[in-house]
């Protein structure tokens, strides 16, 4: 796999950095090279938070993200502040309950913009319905894995179990729901 760039953006408390670590360690299990950088505002909860990942089969020289192939927008700000940089053929994954993408430039009924493809999943709703409202990021993890194949489902599961040894079961459930939701975009 050639170099792919990912940007995850959301509010503090949504598990943006955790999601970055989940993706990164799963990609590692897939045998890829990974570089992840993170940024956040001074507020712990309620401020913005972002994680950037570069995943590649080859050694990664420049470790930062410039033109994401995938944007994971967990809140409106994440969508608004990054949509302009998304190129043709790139994918934008949003939490459809929290992000209104209808105003995006060139956004037709098919959800296809002039440059990027927008796909929504009710990640937070899934988490709430499972009784684990904090696992929206893990549902998004499943959604990404289904749509992009990066990382593979098998490695994602392993990285979830390693990260949440005591809460593996509920997080696996959230992952599966997100993964299933990705099916309709195949």
């Amino acid at each position: 796999m050639k170099r792919k760039e990912f940007r995850i953006y959301g509010s503090g408390g949504q598990g943006v950095i955790t999601l970055g670590h989940l993706i990164g360690s799963a990609a590692l299990l897939d045998g890829c090279e990974v570089a992840m950088t993170e940024e956040y505002s001074p507020q712990i909860t309620g401020g913005w938070s972002s994680a950037d990942l570069v995943i590649s089969d080859e050694e990664i020289d420049y470790p930062l993200v410039r033109n994401p192939d995938y944007l994971l927008a967990l809140n409106q700000e994440g969508f608004d502040s990054n949509i302009a940089r998304m190129r043709k053929g790139s994918a934008v994954l949003v939490d459809s309950e929290l992000v209104d993408s209808s105003d995006a430039p060139g956004n037709g009924k098919s959800g296809e913009m002039s440059h990027a493809i927008i796909m929504g999943v009710s990640a937070r709703k899934i988490a709430v319905s499972l009784g684990t409202p904090n696992s929206g990021n893990v549902a998004m993890f499943g959604f990404l894995s289904r749509i992009s194949g990066i990382p593979t489902k098998k490695s994602c599961m392993e990285s979830i179990k390693k990260r949440f040894p005591k809460r593996a079961e509920e997080n696996v459930k959230a992952f599966e729901k997100g993964y299933d939701a990705g099916g309709k975009f195949e």
Binding site: E33, V34, A35, T37
Partner: peptide, 9 residues
């Protein structure tokens, strides 16, 4: 700062 905050294998 980048090297300190970056995660890699």
């Amino acid at each position: 700062q980048v090297i300190g905050h970056m995660s890699e294998k």
